[in-house]
Write a protein that binds this DNA or RNA. Structure first.
Lengths: 351, 351
DNA sequence: TTGTATGCGTTATCAT
DNA sequence: ATGATAACGCATACAA
């Protein structure tokens, strides 16, 4: 099993030339069926697997997919990677993981990765500051798929969710259980997902004919601490000015809000209803458990891997054949996970 | 930046032969300092990086480390991977991730991985049923490091914790705050860590002169449901028979216990004190937050990567030079994280 | 349809 | 100390 067989050995055993073995291995149609079977049998019998290194050198392409990912301890990343790994596992590809540390890595790291010529395709997860560089690389032919909610999707194949629609749904959910005074804690304004979620929130209010109250739009930064400060500030005000519900643009900020309500004895959802976004793995364990918008992280990873491998499969060696259709953007559906932070009752009977 | 320079190009630019450039690249001492500088400068100017594939084919070794890991959504795995990635990031190596699904993968998958000859070294995390196969491969020269608590460490380089000592510490902690009736929920008996933790528990009781009560040794299986059932069973009994404290061999079983205490209105820690093992990412968010033994997952990953790369560095090409010392086993220290499940008035941690 | 020969980019073994 | 040149294992253009 562990012997280092080469294509030469198989050729000798099958009484054919290396070239023929190679053709069989690569499913070249111009090979006699009988011969093909004989070679195939011997290959299988000996468990021969072509040396990836040699194949890569000779043929150009190798079955390696580079995955650029933030630290695996970030929320949602393990779930995404699980999906990626799941799809790749059933393919002929292998996964080369580049765990990037945004505080230390710059675009030269990306250059080095590609210079090694180990991987010739990339699946980038939340590339952040690397985005512009990746765009350049894509223009020059690098097969690339993005999972990114910080930048608006461009020409690059992209997998994600519809942030505006999801935020619309979350807000409408609150409206439908009777809330009319709904605040929104916004994420960093430079993030695409922040502005989209804000837009969805606004749109929902508009649809329900609710006049927009600027005091209910609260600027956060996705960190738990910002949720804490915003809540403290809000609850410092006269109770009459409080909203009856808060829609936080991510779960972490909602955690911050919960921290404050717990400290001050403000009841959730009786005094104030709370809904987050992401379905963080901790959300179901909060006190009370947090209602939130579930992001299908695993499915996103799975789909992104599928898209990339599709692109690779369609490629007949360099130069890469690019579809001239509109850019490939895949939006996966989200869903609202109702938990106790919103489930108790409606504050006022709906009309 | 993206041009495909070869060693030949550099040779031409530096007016030397490929061989010399190769020597400079590989820090071969037998090269004229002046020449070396000239070549080095040109290499840097052009950002030349040798093609990994070609290097691997010609030289045998490549800078690739295969990491065999369970699904990234398993407890502790992202933390371990974070440590692994952190160390590898600062080395010349790259990380090839093989996410293995224990329900589907068998040892033939391992064979295939090695047959590809992509990676020639492995870092295996909780290899489970792959252990015997890995042992064979190690015997035949595969550079390998294990992070595994299911099997007793053998000849293979190994990174982990001292389960017996850690369980001893946990039990002693309970004894020192006054408990004398301490139950232990044991993990699967086939796991090395289970028997070690049980041994540590027993040893601590012994040291405190406490007679061993078989009724306080409860057989679980590391799953949350077993904790639930054991607790239900325990609390069904006469209150006089209850222990005053429970030491669960992992946090998940402790979660199950907490589930039951909450349902039945049993106060923790007032009525019963609880301590777990692992410091699961959810433990600090339980109600009440769970006191537990912290496993230094990130450090374990970091250290394991360091050990493997040390081994690789000591290797002067195949055959691998093996140290004849005693097997390399590294035990990292654990620590007890005291939270409210064992300390009545400890503040609840901020998320 | 099949075999021969060349090349992929690098390292290593010879010479010089 | 440096330069040719032969591997490394495979794919492929070309010849047969």
């Amino acid at each position: 099993m562990g012997e280092k067989l080469t294509i030469q050995d198989i050729a000798r055993l099958a009484q054919v030339s290396k070239a023929t073995v190679s053709r069989v291995l690569n499913h070249n149609p111009s090979v006699d069926p009988a011969l093909r079977d004989r070679v195939t049998r011997i290959v299988r019998e000996h468990g021969f697997v072509p040396n990836v290194t040699a194949t890569g050198l000779a043929g150009g392409r190798n079955p390696l997919i580079g995955v650029l990912a933030p630290p695996l301890t970030w929320p949602g990343i393990p779930e995404i990677m699980r999906g990626v790994a799941q799809y790749i596992e059933d393919s002929i590809y292998e996964l080369v993981l580049y765990s990037i540390n945004f505080e230390r890595n710059h675009s030269d790291v990306l250059d080095r990765i590609l210079s090694l010529r180990l991987v010739s395709s990339l699946l980038a997860i939340l590339p952040g500051s690397l985005s512009p560089h990746l765009t350049n690389l894509y223009q020059t032919g690098l097969p690339l798929v993005l999972i990114d909610d910080q930048e608006a999707p461009g020409d690059i194949p992209w997998v994600g969710i519809d942030n505006a629609a999801s935020a619309y749904d979350a807000t409408r959910y609150l409206l439908e259980v009777g809330h009319r005074r709904i605040a929104h804690i916004v994420g960093p304004p430079t993030y695409y997902c922040s502005t989209q979620r804000l837009a969805g929130y606004r749109h929902a209010l508009q649809c329900y004919g609710i006049t927009h109250d600027p005091a209910f739009i609260l600027q956060g930064d996705f960190e738990i601490e910002s949720g804490r400060q915003i809540a403290a500030n809000l609850f410092d005000g006269d109770r009459a000015t409080w909203p009856s519900a808060i829609f936080a643009a991510n779960d972490q900020m909602a955690f911050g809000v919960l921290d404050v309500t717990t400290q001050r004895g403000i009841r959730v959802p009786e005094d104030i209803t709370l809904i987050g976004f992401d379905d963080h793995i901790l959300s179901g364990y909060m006190q009370p458990p947090l209602t939130t918008v579930h992001q299908p992280f695993t499915e996103m990873g799975f789909k992104a891997a599928e898209v990339l491998i599709d692109i690779l499969g369609a490629t007949k060696g360099p130069p890469l054949r690019r579809s001239t259709d509109h850019p490939l953007h895949i939006q996966l559906p989200t869903s609202i996970v109702v938990r106790a932070s919103s489930a108790a009752h409606s504050p006022s009977p709906a009309p």
